[in-house]
């Protein structure tokens, strides 16, 4: 029996995460780190990888244990799970990429309070089986990463004239210093929201 791809549950899970319920533009979750870490492409990629790892691990643990976790203590359970995996990410960055950890600063630790992970755990992993949770974690993690990376591309290109450390802009280019500083992050995210919401025709809240 042939089932249309767009009707399967897995397809919907992935599409919700990648586009329809995009964590940053439609639900406005995880904004803090999206703003702070998007000044350079390499930082954005490292942060994205960290978040994907923690999301996946939390998704697996919470969905496997979902029948054993008492409702009253579920928030604390998420927090301890997320915090443990965040520590792993931090230790890993410290051991292999100390410069990136230096650049990201406290934001690696702040994966704990990244609302995407908490939000997905509460909204999805606690009710669904491990397979769907893994798909959901991957979709949300990837959409977080591509958003961060595309913001970082714009900011690094205009702010430093480079991408991943390679010079792209011609010699005479004057870097837009404001792009790498705090206001640039707000402006780029505002434009990003504007563009995606126009494309998706999201009704404003």
């Amino acid at each position: 029996m042939a089932v249309k791809l767009s009707n399967t549950r897995s397809y919907n899970t992935v599409m919700d995460g990648l586009w329809r319920d995009h964590p940053i533009s439609s639900m406005v979750l995880g904004i803090c780190s999206a703003l702070a870490v998007s000044n350079k492409v390499e930082n954005a990629l490292a942060m994205g990888a960290g978040v994907i790892f923690v999301l996946l691990a939390t998704g697996i643990i919470v969905s496997v244990l979902r029948k054993l976790i008492p409702r009253r203590v579920r928030i604390i359970t998420y927090m301890v799970t997320i915090a443990s995996f965040t520590i792993i990410v931090d230790r890993y960055l410290d051991a292999f990429y100390p410069e990136i950890r230096e650049a990201i600063g406290p934001y690696a630790g702040l994966i704990i309070t990244n609302c995407i992970i908490m939000g997905r755990a509460e909204a999805f992993y606690i009710q669904n089986n491990p397979f769907q949770s893994i798909l959901d974690a991957l979709a949300n993690g990837v959409s977080y990463t591509y958003t961060l990376t595309s913001m970082a591309l714009i900011r690094e290109l205009l702010g430093f004239g480079t991408v991943l450390g390679f010079r792209i802009m011609p010699e005479g280019f004057t870097p837009w210093v404001v792009m790498v500083m705090a206001p640039g992050a707000f402006f780029v995210l505002a434009v990003f929201l504007w563009v995606t919401r126009t494309m998706a025709r999201v009704e404003p809240e």
Binding site: V28, F186, F187, L189, A190, L193, W194, R197, P204, E205
Partner: peptide, 10 residues
């Protein structure tokens, strides 16, 4: 499309 979060960001 800018209403809500977008304008707050700007």
């Amino acid at each position: 499309p800018l209403r809500g979060t977008g304008i707050v960001m700007l």
